[in-house]
């Protein structure tokens, strides 16, 4: 009988210890980055408005409209013959850029891509996106905890979200 109780007590103690160790490890942030990075931010990419996408991707934050961010869309700039592949280029003099997001306001799902940079990466970054119809295209940079945003209106001849 006493043996039985001791056994139970042991099991409970063991459980408590491992749970608290896990909590400690989690709180210390050791587990965080890798696991967060491994996750595709579904809510952000499936959001149907720019506001929702940003909220899901970056959380609540004030965004500064800023000339520090040089953003080119289309070729010639602000014009695209074929919306299925519109060149974009992002250039900036900001230091310690952590993240870049590109959004197309009038697309069914505005968030086009989100880049997570390490200090080993420097700008400019170039890529191609799809734009369904004439729409503002927004680039957002997070650097040193601040957000910078630049928007360009792009005219599209043939929509590219087919």
């Amino acid at each position: 009988m006493t043996d039985d109780i001791m056994q139970q007590r042991r099991a409970i103690l063991k459980g408590a210890i491992s749970a608290s160790t896990l909590a400690l490890v989690a709180a210390s942030g050791l587990l965080l980055p890798r696991q967060l990075l491994a996750h595709w931010p579904k809510n952000a990419f499936n959001a149907e408005t720019v506001e929702d996408a940003l909220l899901a991707l970056l959380g609540e934050a004030d965004i500064a409209d800023d000339a520090a961010l040089n953003f080119k869309v289309g070729s010639p700039p602000s014009y695209a013959i074929n919306g299925a592949s519109v060149p974009i280029q992002i250039q900036s003099d900001l230091n310690n850029i952590e993240r870049i997001a590109v959004l197309v306001e009038n697309n069914p799902f505005p968030l086009a891509m989100s880049l997570e940079l390490t200090p080993a990466v420097s700008l400019p970054i170039k890529s191609m996106i799809k734009i369904r119809e004439d729409s503002p295209v927004i680039a957002i940079i997070r650097a040193e905890g601040k957000l910078y945003k630049t928007s360009r209106f792009v005219e599209v001849d043939i929509g590219g979200c087919g």
Binding site: F45, L111, P119, A120
Partner: peptide, 28 residues
């Protein structure tokens, strides 16, 4: 990755163009 160091992660949505193209700089 550059050698064994992970340098850049890109998450794409459906609005990334067909045959995704990226160009970027690595310091040093």
């Amino acid at each position: 990755w550059r050698n064994d160091e992970e340098v850049l992660t890109i998450k794409c949505g459906t609005a990334t163009a067909r045959n995704p193209y990226f160009s970027f700089q690595l310091v040093g």
